[in-house]
Design a protein around this nucleic acid. Structure first.
Length: 678
DNA sequence: CAATGCATAAACAATC
DNA sequence: AGATTGTTTATGCATT
């Protein structure tokens, strides 16, 4: 199915966003895989046999998940990503641009992942919240499942013991184990959902890590894929597993234990670990000897002991103190077939997870590599003109974070490179307070605003990226889009907030600017109406105001159009979560979607002097109709990040004081702004 | 370096 | 009276 996805299209060489759009377009079907139902449906039939398998597995899963999280966090810390994020375009299937097979490495991305990525790119805070909620729901489900199974397990444990006493032999146990495995698969799926979800979030984080430093593209990521801890963990598990495998099934427990005990390296004995252990990269044994050692080294931090209970899968026995826990461990979880079976199951689970993780990493890497290459290669911008970089950074921003300057890497080697320095940490707060920033729009380059907005509508709506147009242009656009070609001031406000996420904060600032522009420019004519006053546009004046400069330079236009696309909106929630994890994250204020505007319409509009407003719907419904792209292989210039990201906390502080409306971010958050235009 | 364009801030008045 | 709308001035930055 997935291959079908990638084999179905022809891709514009330049557009990462197109790729994502396309992928997203095809991702609807795979989404069904996310349904946890199968687990439930099968659980009843298997549960009787699944004594501890699930709990063991869950246990290991949680450990591995933590490990994976650690891994991903470390990846982020390495500031690798060079990925730009595509815009989410689920509402505009018409905009889907086919992806060429050549561009893709079909095996690297699963539909699920793709969809998740797509769904989570350019997330608005609301979207992310939903996702997080979903994840929480998943986790909740799992918890409930776990509890349920533990109950079942207690009963089954009794049965099992009875069976054993009654002379049941390993053979039957193996059968049980097999079924346990089957059940594990189910739970594994669920776990994978969570993991992928997490992974996606982390990817998002990766993607949001922004360029600015040409020299550090993907290598760090590739090399840093596997944190030391995880690698070690892997090694441990693998070696242990192989050790176990090498022994007869009947004696595996003994051998396994022997291996553990005899292991000289403390870190070589951990078969079961809890999240804490994995997080710390500490490995410990569950054998008595090892425990004592572990205890000495890390007092009361036994992987199998936490919150006063035994963490042995399916046990949960309450242990007053660590000593009693050790006693309990030695007495209840001594070497026997049961413990051995649990270990085996666990190892298999771990291996599966490792495989899955490896695959995911591979895919991620391939994706990033692919995107990196793609975005890099087409860049042939004749001039360093870039829309975003043309934006003026505020003084404070520049001073505060010189490295964060969104300068366009016009070199082919530095496309979407992550910024590894500069404002290393941008807090959620700072992200939200992108506040009054002085920046220059590229409006002067005459990018056809209507087509740009139309093409990137979803992007602008969700990403807090400042549209690369002047207030005057935006106001004009708002007015022209209205049926009556006239709007009240409030309607103009609403258009701004509705069309651009960016204008959902710092209302006082930009509203003032809007009013200022309306009054200042002759092209805006105030007309007294029955209900009050409306604003109209005097196109002649407007055209006077903006000399047409670049009609003849398509590449410039292209650059303009694509430039702002590579910025990724910082996901507030994501950032918050990262902040919670103390992950130094440098993110951008915007996430990009390189939706290249429809150049044809762009040029047309350009030539027409934008006199005749192009219907935005028109461009919406014609995805790949850009002749210009065909004629001129699009050169996507690696545009710099939105300067906002470069702003950094300092800028925030400096501007915050000036902004009377500084803290009114939510002014428009939930405000329905649909009165006009509809 | 000056001119220009734009963003931002703010004072102020008129109106709702 | 307070909020909104509209005008105007000032300032700073970037581009030309």
């Amino acid at each position: 199915m997935f291959q079908c996805v990638f084999s179905s299209g022809v891709l514009q060489p330049h557009s990462t966003s197109c790729l994502f759009k396309h992928l997203f377009y095809h991702s609807a079907t795979p989404a069904s895989q996310k349904q946890p139902e199968p687990i439930y449906s099968k659980k009843t039939e298997i549960q009787r046999q699944t004594v501890r398998a699930h709990s063991v597995k869950l246990f290991v899963f949680s450990a591995l998940q933590v490990a994976r999280q650690l891994l991903l966090q470390q990846q982020q810390q390495q500031q690798v990503s060079g990925l730009k994020s595509p815009k989410r375009n689920d509402k505009q299937p018409a905009l889907q641009v086919p992806v060429s097979v050549a561009m893709m490495t079909p095996q690297v991305i699963t539909p699920q992942q793709m969809q998740q990525i797509l769904q989570q790119q350019v997330l608005s805070p609301q979207q992310l919240q939903v996702l997080l909620q979903q994840q929480q729901a998943l986790m909740l489900q799992q918890q409930q499942l776990q509890e349920f199974y533990k109950k079942q397990q207690e009963q089954l444990q009794l049965q099992l013991l009875q069976q054993q006493h009654a002379g049941k032999q390993p053979k039957e146990q193996q059968q049980v184990a097999t079924q346990q495995l089957a059940f594990q698969q189910q739970l594994l799926q669920m776990q994978q959902l969570q993991q992928q979800h997490l992974l996606s979030l982390q990817r998002q984080g990766l993607l949001t890590i922004q360029p600015g430093q040409p020299a550090l593209p993907l290598q760090p990521l590739a090399q840093g894929m596997i944190p030391t801890e995880l690698q070690q963990l892997w090694k441990e598990v693998t070696s242990a597993h192989s050790a176990e495998e090498s022994t007869g099934s009947n004696h595996s427990s003994l051998d396994l234990t022997t291996t553990c005990v005899s292991s000289s390296a403390p870190s070589k004995t951990s078969l079961i670990m809890n999240p804490h252990a994995s997080t710390n990269g500490q490995l410990s044994v569950h054998t008595p000897k090892r425990e004592s050692l572990s205890h000495e080294e890390h007092p009361h931090s036994h992987p199998l002991y936490g919150h006063g209970v035994c963490k042995w899968p399916g046990c949960e026995a309450v242990c007053e103190d660590f000593q009693s826990f050790l006693k309990h461990l030695n007495s209840e979880h001594a070497l026997d077939d049961r413990s051995t079976a649990q270990c085996r199951v666990q190892m298999q689970v771990v291996q599966q997870l490792e495989l899955q993780l490896a695959k995911d990493k591979e895919r991620l890497q391939a994706m990033m590599t692919h995107l990196h290459v793609k975005s890099t290669e087409p860049k042939a911008a004749p001039q360093p003109l870039n829309l975003v970089s043309s934006v003026t950074l505020s003084k404070s921003a520049s001073e505060a974070s010189p490295q964060s300057l969104p300068h366009t890497p016009t070199t082919p080697t530095a496309p979407i490179t992550p910024v590894t320095q500069g404002p290393s940490v941008i807090t959620t707060t700072s992200m939200h307070t992108v506040g009054p920033i002085r920046r220059r729009y590229s409006d002067k380059y005459n990018v056809p605003i209507s087509s740009d907005i139309a093409q990137n509508q979803e992007f602008y709506k969700n990403a807090e990226v400042r549209p690369p147009f002047t207030y005057a242009s935006l106001i004009r656009q708002a007015i022209l889009e209205s049926p009556e070609k006239q709007l009240t001031l409030n309607e103009i406000y609403n258009w701004f907030t509705r069309m651009f996420a960016y204008f959902r904060r710092n209302a006082a600032t930009w509203k003032n600017a809007v009013r200022h522009n309306l009054s200042l420019h002759k092209c805006f004519v105030r007309v007294e109406n029955v209900k009050g006053a409306v604003w109209t546009v005097d196109e002649v004046e407007f055209q006077k105001r903006r000399p047409q400069k670049i009609s003849g330079n398509p590449s410039l236009i292209k650059n303009m159009q694509s430039s702002h696309a590579y910025c990724t909106p910082l996901n507030a929630a994501l950032q918050a979560s990262m902040a919670e994890n103390s992950i130094p994250l440098y993110t951008t204020a915007s996430m990009g979607n390189p939706t290249l505007g429809n150049l044809a319409s762009a040029i047309r509009e350009e030539l027409n002097g934008a006199m005749e407003h192009t219907n935005s719907n028109e461009s919406d419904s014609s995805p790949g109709r850009s002749p210009m792209q065909a004629v001129h292989p699009v050169h996507v210039k690696e545009e710099p990040l939105d300067p906002e990201e470069a702003e950094g906390p300092l800028s925030l502080v400096t501007t915050a004081n000036h902004s009377p409306d500084f803290d009114h971010d939510r002014d428009y958050e939930d405000e329905p702004v649909n009165e006009d235009m509809e």
